[in-house]
Design a binder for these strands. Structure first.
Lengths: 354, 354
DNA sequence: ATAACTTGCACAAACGTTTGCGCAAAGCTG
DNA sequence: CAGCTTTGCGCAAACGTTTGTGCAAGTTAT
């Protein structure tokens, strides 16, 4: 009955499978499968179904998802590709996605690219090998081989936060252009004229749209941004923000009146750099961010920024994925969430709300 | 040659499989498998191997991980169960784990329990059904059915951050007792005598150890903590911290001199609550946290706390998992990282470092 | 009572791998 | 050159499901 105690070898307990339930219930294993499949309405008598269910429960049967996947060609798992989970914009996205997909039995596979373009493609390939049912790509660049690869492989793809140049990918995003344009307008309206900007690589739609938003607002107000008031970061991190800010401050004898940062992390770095240079924020220099990641109201000074509704974006992305999974023929749709300007103490001259 | 264009139906492209490569290379598909398996040193002639590899590359063959898993009974995927990815302690853990496991071809499945005990067990079951090779449990309670279930199922388990009562689970954690004891000692040494504490449910080792650390330090200094200086949170969140702090302030006519919070998020809530009550931190009241999550040096006031080295814990957990995967018979080992007290402006009377 | 359905279940073929085994051909030993 | 060992590869059986088909019963219609 019990296997001989092979030393302390507590080997992986043999799982109960369909056949075990079947023999115990005295039916064929295909019958067990039909009974246990969700959405079973087939031609099985009630008493057999009940008996099978009872036996299955008693034996603690749990279907082997791998075998099921092999047969059905669906793993009920989806991938999420991000730059780095340590960037605070991603956890709410993950949570949102998970909260929508998990009730439907989907599992989420997370992959960090570490900001590497080849890592991105590699992750898509590895996820494809795992037969994920779909992929959320949060690292989408304007021209992105990873997107093309998904299309080529026929894997449903939902781009999160960002969009490709062609705009032909299903996507859920924030309207970064309007957000940054509105924020910049507020800054100008507050009287700022000597404006600097820290911008990010323009191969990401977020970075591009925000930069265009800044430019648009300034143009509308007849202002210009000289080259020495522009700094570039290689990625949106505090370290890069700090470095870029130093270079901005070094590029001219007088510091700018305000630095518009491509996102909050960069803004944090900017605040650090300013402080190290002996500049007080906001008395000597103003700073703004983008995203409104957690705690931006608690830092010193509280950061003016643009709220993204990341949780809503995550949920919406999850729902959009479900739609495309149900109907892959659906035309690509881009859903944009309205950004919300948040004015706080880091900007001299504006009137902080609530 | 090409299939007729079935309307606009861009169906999922048929994947190239072993058999396709085999016929193209003029060998049996088992041979292809042998050639392509990593660690192939079997009895295949060099020229056949080369030919097969060439054909495989040309056809863009990628092995079907699901089929492979079914056969090998290993999915090369591992689960990570957390309360909520939005808690900033988890992303570094995830990143650390992923950075160690991903090079070995493992994928990470993330599950949020939403602080639900039954959700935890459910997640374990769902991951077990997916035949994960191992599970990281970051939600481990002192008595945890999920842990028992893993043991019962024979699934390698590494507990992260927390430990069970018996201590028989492989675990990587911070020494919360010493960390909190040291921090409390600093606080007492700074002259604080009217101390309050916000503690969390004692079914988590982290919460328990920290509370014991506070008590130990106070006992050593001959101090006592009256009941009205103790508040409890149901979970370690800012909201709960705010609520608990209010109740603390309401419980006595005079506010305490310092509130020792079970973690940083709770401390953030405490700062908010104090501010709302018109108390200045740290002039009217001091506050400390635990974890040293990002930005704790940037908030107002900078938070005194204990640094956890979460990234190291994540990496160590990953490495420990690899060990147990390679050798499941290994006795359970608990690895503890040394905490580091970080003194900042939120504590009146201490001397902030660097 | 016979024909034509319907119902309830068993049969068996996939899904795409991995891997023990078998068997030729080739290489070696004496 | 006979006998033995090694080498190189094909064969086929798993792994645990899902699902189309088949075939006895049972049911209804004529």
């Amino acid at each position: 009955m019990s296997n001989p105690p092979k030393s302390a070898t507590h080997k992986r307990a043999r799982r109960v499978k369909l056949a075990d339930v079947a023999t115990a219930a005295g039916v064929h294993y295909s019958t067990v499968s039909r009974v246990l499949r969700p959405g079973f309405k087939g031609r099985i008598s009630d008493d057999v179904a009940e008996r099978v269910r009872a036996v299955a429960r008693e034996l603690g049967y749990q279907p082997n998802a791998v075998a099921s996947s092999l047969r059905t060609q669906s793993t009920r798992s989806i991938g999420l590709i991000v730059h780095d989970m340590n960037d605070p914009i991603y956890p709410p996205i993950l949570s949102g996605i998970e909260s929508v997909l998990s009730p439907d039995g989907y599992a989420v596979l997370v992959g960090n690219t570490g900001y590497g373009a080849d890592a991105e493609l590699d992750l898509v390939n590895r996820m494809a090998a795992r037969l994920v049912d779909g992929i959320f790509l949060a690292t989408t660049r304007l021209k992105d081989p990873a997107v093309e690869r998904c299309v080529q492989l026929g894997i449903p793809l939902v781009s999160v936060l960002r969009q490709t140049e062609s705009g032909t990918t299903p996507a859920v995003m924030n309207d970064c252009f309007r957000g940054m344009e509105a924020l910049t307008s507020h800054i100008i309206d507050a009287g700022h004229r000597d404006i600097a900007a820290i911008i990010a690589p323009q191969d990401l739609s977020t970075a591009q749209e925000r930069w265009q938003g800044v430019q648009s607002a300034m143009r509308k107000h007849g202002l210009d941004l000289p080259e020495h008031r522009i700094a570039r970061v290689s990625r949106m991190s505090t370290e890069e923000g700090e470095r870029a800010t130093k270079s901005l401050l070094d590029a001219a004898t007088e510091p700018p009146g305000v630095i518009i940062c491509v996102n909050d992390l960069v803004a944090i770095g900017a605040i650090r750099a300013c402080r190290l240079s002996g500049l007080d924020v906001p008395w000597d220099i103003s700073i703004s961010g983008y995203n409104d990641i957690p705690l931006m109201d608690m830092i010193n000074p509280p950061l003016s920024t643009v709220h993204m509704h990341l949780d809503k974006i995550g949920k919406a992305a999850g729902e959009m994925m479900l739609e495309y999974l149900a109907n892959p023929e659906l035309p690509a749709r881009t859903q944009r969430f309205k950004p919300e300007v948040i004015l706080r103490g880091s900007l001299q001259g504006v009137h902080p709300q609530g």
